[in-house]
Design a binder for these strands. Structure first.
Length: 284
DNA sequence: CACCATGTTCCTTG
DNA sequence: CCAAGGAACATGGT
């Protein structure tokens, strides 16, 4: 469930439930999930710490930790990879499938589970560096987008997904944003006109914030166990033009919600991209 | 068995 | 040198 909107909603859900909780014990079921330190070192840097604010940078969750004296002591950073999940449960609840690391708290526990094992947990003391701007930051203007895109000849879709270019955009939302902006994924980045960069900026902000809105609403109105996969629940329902479903992602052959032509699936950098041949012309 | 999969990083090829 | 593509990571679902 890991692109910016899903991580953002997860972050907002976890924050109030973690604040003040004490990390008493760490159980590592999958050592490879611990990044850049031994399991021993990692555990030692966790035990006894108290959870503070929870935030997000790109697709990473950052759990602020304090020492038992109350002083700030860095972060627990979780990158979900493709299949990572985070859940909070009572101690007597059944564990989720594919548990990788369990954090036992003074009340309940936090479980990171991961079927494919591409997610990573890190103990860090500085904010992540080398990442592109946050698209929902008020400072993120069309000009900032233009700067981030640079004078690259890369296809715009591939460029959008590059973490050092822009934070938080993955395969799903790259396709959605480009559809919304009416830009073909294969357009060379440097060929985009100013008006198109403007449209793309607007599309990125509206698609991402709408996804957060939908994801957040889903957590509040039932089906809490499945909210992270809301895009799968809504497959095929995207033709309402706005709201819950994806407009193009995973909708090969389905009618474009804007013009009715069948959505095409193409390949780019060995990943699937979905595009409407009518609404996203190859030529500006 | 074949092919697909929400991410990131590194290597190879042209 | 650069850019684009592909592989790798490790595993499950269809």
């Amino acid at each position: 469930m890991p692109e910016l909107p899903e991580v953002e909603v997860l972050c907002r859900r976890l924050a109030p439930r973690l604040a003040g909780r004490i990390l008493q014990r760490v159980e590592i079921h999958r050592p490879a999930s611990i990044h850049r330190s031994s399991t021993r070192t990692f555990t030692g840097h966790c035990i006894g710490r108290v959870f503070g604010p929870v935030s997000r940078r790109a697709k990473r969750l950052l759990f602020g930790l304090n020492s038992d004296g109350g002083l700030p002591d860095g972060f627990l950073q979780i990158h979900l990879g493709m299949t990572g999940r985070v859940a909070i449960g009572d101690s007597d609840q059944e564990s989720p499938a594919y548990p990788a690391v369990t954090f036992h708290l003074d009340h309940g526990r936090l479980v990171f589970s991961d079927a494919r094992g591409l997610g990573r947990i890190d103990r860090v003391w500085v904010m992540p560096e080398g990442l592109g701007p946050e698209p929902l930051d008020p400072e993120f203007t069309p000009g900032r987008l233009a700067t981030a895109l640079g004078n690259s000849s890369q296809p715009i879709k591939v460029r959008l997904m590059h973490p050092q270019c822009l934070a938080g955009i993955g395969n799903i939302y790259a396709a959605e944003c480009l559809f919304e902006a009416g830009i073909h994924p294969k357009r060379p980045t440097r060929d985009l006109r100013e008006a198109e960069v403007h449209r793309l900026h607007r599309a990125i902000r509206s698609v991402l914030s709408q996804a957060i809105h939908v994801g957040w609403a889903a957590t509040r109105s039932g089906n809490p166990a499945k909210w992270t996969l809301f895009h799968r629940e809504t497959r095929g329902l995207g033709s309402d033009g706005k709201g819950s479903g994806f407009r193009v992602y995973d909708r090969e052959g389905a009618p474009c919600p804007r013009c009715g032509l069948p959505i095409q699936r193409i390949r780019q950098a060995s990943r699937s991209t979905y595009v409407c041949p009518g609404c996203q012309p190859l030529k500006p």
